[in-house]
Amino acid sequence: MKITFWGVRGSVPTPLSPQQIQSKIMAAIQRAKPEDLENSETRAKFISTLPQWIFGTTGGNTSCVELVHNKTHIILDAGTGIRALGKARKCPDKYYLFFSHLHWDHIHGLPFFDHCFNQDCQFEVYSHYEQAEQYLRDQVKVPYSPPDVVQALSKKFNFHTVEEGKQFEIEGIKVNSHRMRHPGGCSAFSFEIDGKKFVYATDVELKSTDYSKPQKGGEVFKNANAIVIDSQYTVEEVYRKENWGHSAFCYAIDFAVYWNIKKVYLFHHEPAYDDKKLNSILQAARWYAQYINHSDVEVNLAKETQEITL
């Protein structure tokens, strides 16, 4: 299966500001030597050596992750990242659309997803909300959206309510779910096929008790090949923002170790953090994994357009 990140921010979309772009340019200039700028070849080589936080960007769109296996197309959440997905992909005959929960940053991209307006495309929508259809209709009804958006979203959308811990299959892919600690609730989902398991676990406030005793959710988390997990805060912020529903990066590492998950993708990034700050969090997370003697855990920062193949 191939996983692509289209939106990785939490709470609100966060486009690069002019000041952030200027800071990147200044950081690049400060690193340049005269010989780096002699010709196009040396300039290209110099650019290739710049840290990712200078040369690229983590991205500012809210949560949206795509999973593709053969001709099966699955979308996890519909934050603003789903708009970019619609621009980059040809429309398939069917999408399986999963919602972890229905907070705005996970649904507000849906009316801007081009494929919603393709009447030849069918959507199978999954969540733990029995009233998901009504909730999604409410966000696009007049006066919040033009009438044609409501009309488009009323066609070829079939809604399914998921039962926690009850496994089901989508075109041979085994799907499991587990409710997470988050204000209003949130669900993690696992997708397993051909011996590979991928877990999507955004918006969760992990506690120390999650690692101190046997926990439910083994079918979802245990021995997964990769997990995308909420790591919005630093440890200091977690204490200041208790019950806000998000976790620190070190808790995400502990969680992966507890469930024997080897690849961690830090996700749902704090909108106040620029690329330099997020890079420092990634380095701290990798250091922490070594500190607890689990350097075998591969720690990555989820970035827009990044692809994973399992």
Rank of each mutant, 00 (worst) to 15 (best):
A289C: 06
P111Q: 00
F112R: 05
Q283K: 15
I75L: 09
D114R: 05
Y135A: 14
S40W: 15
I173G: 00
I47C: 05
I21A: 07
N158K: 14
A132E: 09
N70S: 12
V257R: 02
R137C: 07
Q119R: 15
L67G: 00
G59T: 10
R9G: 01
K213G: 10
Y200H: 08
K2A: 13
I107M: 15
V235T: 13
S177W: 07
T305G: 13
I193D: 05
G195P: 15
G59K: 11
Q290F: 09
E66Q: 14
F123K: 08
N223Y: 13
Q139P: 11
N118C: 01
A226I: 06
E38N: 12
A44K: 12
P15S: 01
N260W: 07
Y273T: 15
V204Q: 04
L102I: 04
L67R: 05
Q139K: 11
G195T: 14
D93C: 10
P18R: 02
F98Y: 09
R137A: 10
E169L: 09
K174H: 03
E124H: 01
T49L: 05
V8T: 09
E270M: 13
F267W: 03
Y288Q: 06
P146M: 02
H73C: 03
L266H: 04
I227T: 05
V297S: 07
V125H: 00
T14D: 08
E237Y: 01
Q134C: 14
L282Y: 01
C116S: 15
Y135C: 11
L282I: 03
A32W: 00
N61A: 13
Q30I: 08
K277F: 09
E171H: 04
F117H: 11
Q30C: 10
G185P: 02
Y129E: 14
Q215M: 14
T62S: 03
K2F: 05
N279C: 10
K276D: 15
R89W: 11
I261H: 00
G184I: 00
I3W: 01
K222G: 04
A224K: 09
N279V: 01
Y126R: 01
L37P: 02
E192T: 14
H294D: 13
V220K: 08
A201T: 01
E66P: 00
V257L: 09
T49V: 02
S154K: 09
I82W: 00
T4F: 05
H128L: 08
I47N: 07
K71S: 11
K263T: 13
A84N: 09
S231D: 03
N260K: 14
F98V: 08
N70I: 06
V257T: 10
K156C: 08
L153M: 06
V264S: 07
E133N: 07
I21M: 11
F168G: 05
E164Y: 06
D296C: 08
K303P: 11
N300K: 01
T14W: 07
Y211V: 00
I253Q: 05
L206T: 06
H115S: 00
F221Q: 03
P214T: 04
T42N: 05
F168M: 07
H103F: 13
S145K: 03
Q119M: 14
K222S: 06
D105S: 06
H69R: 12
W6K: 08
E237T: 02
D194Q: 11
G56E: 06
D93S: 14
P18C: 02
C116E: 10
V125W: 03
S247I: 07
H294P: 04
P51V: 06
H103E: 12
F112S: 04
E304I: 00
Y129K: 11
S17L: 10
G245W: 02
W53N: 02
P15Y: 12
